[in-house]
Each structure stands twice: as structure tokens, then as C-alpha cells.
Simulated scan of single mutants.
Amino acid sequence: MIGSIKVHQALTDYLDANPEEKGTLAPLSDLLGLGADVTSRKEFRGHVTAGAIVVNDVHQVLHIHHLALDKWLLPGGHLEVQDETLLQAALRELTEETGVKPTAVDTVCAGPIHIDVHPIPANELKGEPAHQHFDFRYLFRTSSAGVLALQAEEVTDFSWRAVEEIADETLRQRVAAALRP
């Protein structure tokens, strides 16, 4: 199971490499400092999620259409008890949402390429108030062309899109830089 200690270490390593993001990630640092269990989806001050940025041989990025949010997003989601690392959680979410197996992708770097902070609207059906996600995003490459099976209860479609179409500017720049020869 991923604990707050592993999250804290991943955050520390990330901020050592990206000190300009300390202000943006201060809410996560603050929660960790308070001893909050940021790995629990029931921590509504904010909790950690894991995402997969999958790039194919022609430098297109896999996007999924999320049913509940009605938006095109990158694969990812909440941590589960069986996840031992954030990287493993990202791979599990990739497989759950798209059917793409971990053996079909290569990890570009061991740490997250980006940590995104974004608001999640309240969901009355789940009894969840509005809260924040701290999404640890990992970069993968694949030579596989396809998605095997979409998670019908959460994902309605998929699309391979150019790196330039990644919505987050920082993530877009980092992915483009990682793909340069």
C-alpha cells in the first residue's frame, strides 16, 4: 500500500527537480505536514491520484473521454490498497480504463513527469463534496496501436492526439522535451 511517506518522498524528489512548483504544490505539502492520509479518497481536503501519459510511436498521446466529467482526459484515477507505488497505481489505472497492459508500455522515467492540482466538483450521488486531486502523472511509451477494452462505467471513448493538444502547458512542454532525440 502506498502510504503518506512514499507520497512525501515522491513529492520531495519532484520538487527537488522542479522547485518552481513549490507554491502550486504547497496545499499537498501542507496536508502531508498535518499528517493527513492523502492516499485516501475520503480525505476531502485533497487526495492523491495517479495518471498515465501514454505516447505512441508517432508522438500521439492517449486521451479518454470521462463519463462523469464529460471531458477528454488522460487515463488515471484514485489509489487502491493493492498499489505499492504511485507508478504502479498509474499503470493499474491505465489498464483498468483502457485495457492497455503494463507489458505494452515502457516507463520513460521512474518519477512523475508532472504533478497536477485540479478541482473536482461535488458528486451528490457518491456523497462527495468538492475537493482537490493531486495527480502524479507518469510518462510511458508504447508501440502498441490500440486500446483493448474501455472501462464502460467511467470511459466512453478514446483518442490518440498530438502532444500539442495536451491541455496543461507545463505537461505539454515536458512531454515534448522528453520525446526529443
Rank of each mutant, 00 (worst) to 15 (best):
D106V: 07
R137Q: 08
T49C: 10
A110Q: 07
V175D: 07
H133I: 04
T98Q: 04
L150E: 05
G127L: 02
A149T: 11
H47L: 00
E164A: 13
N18R: 13
G77L: 05
A90R: 00
R137S: 07
P119R: 06
C109S: 14
A152V: 15
G23Y: 11
G146S: 13
E97T: 01
D13F: 08
V175Q: 02
G35Y: 10
E21D: 15
V100N: 01
T85H: 11
R141H: 15
E43G: 00
R174E: 05
R92V: 09
S143I: 02
W72R: 06
L32C: 12
P129A: 03
L15G: 12
H131K: 04
P75F: 08
V55M: 00
S4M: 11
L69N: 15
I166E: 00
I166P: 08
Q60M: 07
L150I: 11
L32M: 09
Q82G: 10
H59I: 07
V163C: 07
A104K: 02
G33P: 04
G111S: 12
A90Q: 01
F158L: 08
L31V: 01
G146Q: 13
D30I: 13
A130H: 06
W72Y: 08
L171W: 09
R92H: 12
A36K: 04
P121W: 08
I113R: 07
P121S: 13
H59F: 09
D168N: 15
Y14N: 10
A26C: 12
K71N: 13
P27L: 07
A104R: 00
L87N: 09
F140G: 02
V48N: 08
A162L: 12
H133P: 10
V100M: 00
L73G: 00
V155S: 02
W160E: 02
A104W: 03
G99I: 11
L73S: 02
L62G: 00
D106Y: 01
W72M: 06
D37T: 08
A36M: 01
S144C: 12
F44I: 01
A130T: 09
Q132Y: 11
P121L: 14
S4L: 04
T12M: 07
F44T: 01
P102F: 06
A122G: 09
W160F: 14
D83L: 10
T103Y: 06
A122W: 10
R174A: 01
P119I: 12
C109G: 14
W160M: 05
L62D: 04
A110C: 04
S29M: 12
A145P: 06
G23T: 14
A176W: 09
V81G: 09
G77T: 03
K6Y: 07
V38K: 05
E21S: 14
R45S: 05
N18W: 05
V163W: 00
D168Y: 10
S40F: 08
L34R: 14
R180A: 13
E97H: 07
E20D: 14
A17G: 09
